[in-house]
Nucleic acid binder design. Structure first.
Lengths: 393, 393
DNA sequence: GTACTTTTGTCAGGTTGGTTAACATAAGTA
DNA sequence: TACTTATGTTAACCAACCTGACAAAAGTAC
C-alpha cells in the first residue's frame, strides 16, 4: 500500500516555517506571516527558536514605504558544514562545503584503475579528517555525502558497483564514515549527484529535469517533483549500457554494442589512442585545440548519446536537460547531441525542452551533494526534532 | 521555485483520518487511533463527522480477544457516483461507476473514423444524462472523468489531439461537461487512465508502475509515488511515434518509421488486410483462433513494442509493467514483448521487474478514472472542506 | 528638531481544540 | 453470573494560539 510519507508535523511548526522561507527566498516577517498563516506573536516565537538553532538570519532590508524598513529573513545555509566526496573510476575528490555548496577546501586524489575499497576507504577517512581540521569547520559538521558510480542500496547503505568496478560491489560505505565522523552519511549515484547540482543551482525549479553525465562512463539522473527518481533497484537512468543498433564494439561491462563502448570518455580515449591520446584529459585538450579527428570523434559520441537521450526525452518529457561531465560539456559533443535529440524526440516533448551544458563545472557533484544534505538537515521533520530538543527559552 | 504542495490541513484533521483509513484498509477504532495519534474522544468526533458525510462505514468485526469484538471501519467508496467516459479513435464508451470502479451501467458507441467533436460531445452529454437517470444514481454524482487519446492541457481543460484526430485539437472538454452535470470534470490520457486502472486494482502499490496500451494506437503511462507522471507538456510516455531503426513504413501521423506504423492495432489491420481482416476485432479473433499469419504478425508487433519498452524499463526502472489494450493482451504479442524486454533492458532493472497483462479487460480505463475521481474527492483537502461546510451537530 | 508612519516585540486575557480521567453501556467469553 | 474488551459521554483541564493594547525602534516628511 502507498504509505503517506508526509511528516506528521503541523503546517505551522517551526520546520514548516523554515520550509516556506527556503522555498520562497528572503521574506519579511509580514510576508512570512501571510504565507504560514500564523499570528505575529507566534511567528516571533517560531523565529526565535529558529534563530537560536542558527537556521535563519537577517538578509538586509526592504525599501522603506514611509516608516521603518522591513527586515528580510532567509535560511542560514552557510553556518553548517558537510563533508562531501566524489568517487570515480579513476579519482576521488573530497571537499568541505556549506549547505549551499560553497567549497571551502578540496582534495583531489588520482586512483589506480583497479583500486579497491580496502585502500580507498581508509584514505578517504584520513583525508576527510585532515581537510575538516584544516578548514576549522569540524565543529559545525552536520552530515557527510558521497557520490559513487553505479547503483546504491539505500536500505543497507552499500554500493552495487558497475561491472567495471567489481571490487566495489557490496562495499559498506555508510557505516565506516558514520562511525568516524559521527554524522549521518548520504549516498548517491554520481550522475544523480550532478543532476541534483544543476537542480539546486537553478533554484530548485518545479519542473522535470534530466541530467546527463558523460565522463569516464555515461549516466543520467531524473529529478521529478524535486526528488531524484531512483527506480525500483536504484538503476533508473543507467543508459550507458543500452544497445546501439548495429554496433558490436566490446564494452568494459562484458557485453557488446553498449552506448558506453562507443561514446564514453573511456571509449574516446581508446578510439583516439592511435593519435597519442592516453587519458580523458588528453581527449578534452585535443578537442579544445580543434584537432579534426578528436572533434569528429566527440561529435559522433554526442550523436550516439543523443539517440538514446531522444528516447529518454520522449518518455520523460522533461523541461530541462543539463549535460555535464568532462566529455559532456565539449561543444562538438553537445551540439551533435542537441541536433540528434531535436531530430528524433517526439515533437511535443521538444516544444518545451531546454538543453544546456551543466553550469557548475568541477563542483557540480558537490553542489548536488550539499543540496541533498540541506534537504535532509533542513527538512521540517529534522528541524522540528531539533526544535523539540532545544532547552526552553 | 518548488512550491510545497501538501495541503495545509493538519495531520489530525478529518481528511487525514480518512486518508489513513484509505491507505491502510479496514481498521478498528483503536488501530486508527494509534496511527492518527488522536485521543479516543476526538477520534469519535472525527468519525462522527465522516459518518455524517457518508465517507466511512462499518466493515464487519475483528475476532473477539476475550471481550466485545472490535468493529472495523473502512472508507465508503461505493456511496458516491462518477460518470466516466472513454473516448477512442473509433469508439466512445460511457459508464456510471462508484469510486471503487464498479460499473453500474455502460453505453458503447461506435464512431465514424473521422468523427468531430461537434457531433460527439452533444451525443455524450445526452447519453450521459440518460445513463445517470437509468441507474438512479444521478443524485450521488460527485464528478465526471474522461479519457481521451492524445495529450491534455490540464490548465485549460482542453485536448491536444494526436495528428490522427486533427478535428479534436484544442477542443474544450472540461467546460461543456461541467456545465451540464454541475460537477468537477477530470481529463486524462487514455493510456494513463488504463495504467491508473491497474495501479488502483493492485491496491495502490508504493512502487513505480509502467502501463502499456496497445489498441488502435500505442501509448504508455507511468505512475511514480502514486501519481501519473505527465511531463512538461503532457506527452510523457508517448512512445507510439518513436522511430524504429530501419523502418520506412508510412505512419498515419505523417512521418515514417514510427513504432505505431508497424505495431499498433491499426498497423496489424493493414498488414493482415490481404487475409480478409478489416477491424481490430478481426485481428484479435484470428490470433485467438491460432491462425499462423495473424499470430506471427502479433508476435512481431510485440517484439517491436518490446524494443522500445526495454529502453523505457532501463530508464524508469519500474517494479511493474502492465500491458493492456485489445492487442496488448494477446498472448503471442505479450510473450514476444516480454522476451524482447528481457533480452534488451538493463540487467539490474530486470531483476525487480514484473511484466503481466492488465487484469481489468474492458473496464480498465473506468477503474482508472474512478480512482482518479476518488483521489480527488477523498483527498484530505476536499474532505476537510466538506467537513467545514457541514452544519454543526 | 517634531510629527507621523511602519515594523517589531511583549504582555494579558480569551478562545479553541485538543487532552486525561472517570463513569456508563454494549457485547463478547468463560 | 463474572470477567473482559470495545465504545461513548461527560467534565475538568491544559497547551497553543489568537486578539487587542501598549511600547519601542527606525524610518520619512516637514
Amino acid at each position: 500500500m502507498l504509505v503517506t510519507k508526509e511528516t506528521p508535523t503541523s503546517p505551522t511548526s517551526p520546520g514548516h516555517v523554515l520550509a516556506v522561507l527556503r522555498a520562497e527566498g528572503p521574506l519579511t516577517r509580514l510576508e512570512l506571516q501571510e504565507r504560514v498563516g500564523l499570528s505575529r506573536v507566534t511567528l516571533v516565537e517560531r523565529l526565535d527558536l529558529l534563530r537560536r538553532l542558527g537556521l535563519v538570519r537577517q538578509a538586509g532590508h526592504r525599501e522603506s514605504s514611509g516608516g521603518r524598513r522591513a527586515e528580510m529573513l532567509e535560511v542560514n545555509d552557510t553556518g553548517r558544514t558537510a563533508l562531501v566526496a566524489d568517487l570515480g573510476q579513476s579519482h576521488a575528490t573530497l571537499a568541505v562545503v556549506d549547505l549551499r555548496g560553497t567549497v571551502f577546501a578540496r582534495d583531489d586524489h588520482r586512483l589506480a584503475v583497479r583500486h579497491s575499497p580496502q585502500e580507498v576507504v581508509p584514505m578517504l577517512l584520513d583525508a576527510g579528517k585532515r581537510l575538516l581540521e584544516r578548514t576549522g569547520r569540524a565543529d559545525t559538521l552536520c552530515a557527510m555525502a558521497l557520490s559513487v558510480p553505479g547503483q546504491i542500496d539505500h536500505e543497507r547503505g552499500v554500493t552495487v558497483a558497475p561491472p567495471t568496478m567489481p571490487d566495489w560491489n557490496g562495499t559498506p560505505l555508510r557505516r565506516p564514515f558514520a562511525e568516524v565522523f559521527g554524522v549521518p552519511v548520504l549516498l548517491e549515484n554520481d550522475a544523480n549527484a550532478l543532476t541534483l547540482g544543476d537542480y539546486y543551482a537553478m533554484g530548485r525549479p518545479d519542473a522535470t529535469l534530466v541530467g546527463v553525465k558523460v565522463g569516464t562512463g555515461i549516466g543520467t539522473g531524473v529529478v521529478i517533483s524535486g526528488r531524484i527518481h531512483r527506480g525500483e533497484s536504484g538503476s533508473a537512468g543507467e543508459i550507458g549500457h543500452m544497445r546501439i543498433e548495429g554496433s558490436e564494439q566490446q564494452c568494459s561491462c562484458g557485453r557488446r554494442g553498449c552506448v558506453a563502448a562507443s561514446a564514453s570518455g573511456q571509449a574516446l580515449t581508446r578510439i583516439l589512442r592511435s593519435t597519442g591520446v592516453r587519458t580523458i584529459a588528453d581527449v578534452v585538450r585535443r578537442v579544445d585545440e580543434g584537432r579534426g579527428d578528436a572533434v569528429r570523434a566527440a561529435a559522433e559520441a554526442g550523436r550516439l548519446v543523443g539517440t538514446v537521450l531522444a528516447t529518454m526525452v520522449t518518455i520523460i518529457n522533461p523541461r530541462y536537460v543539463r549535460v555535464g561531465g568532462a566529455i559532456g560539456v565539449l561543444p562538438p559533443f553537445l551540439e551533435a547531441l542537441r541536433r540528434t535529440v531535436e531530430a528524433n524526440a517526439h515533437a511535443s516533448a521538444l516544444r518545451s525542452l531546454d538543453i544546456e551544458p551543466s553550469q557548475l563545472g568541477e563542483n557540480g557533484a558537490f553542489v548536488g551533494l550539499a543540496g541533498l544534505v540541506a534537504d535532509e538537515m533542513l527538512s521540517p521533520a529534522t528541524v522540528d526534532a531539533l526544535a523539540a530538543a532545544l532547552p526552553q527559552s
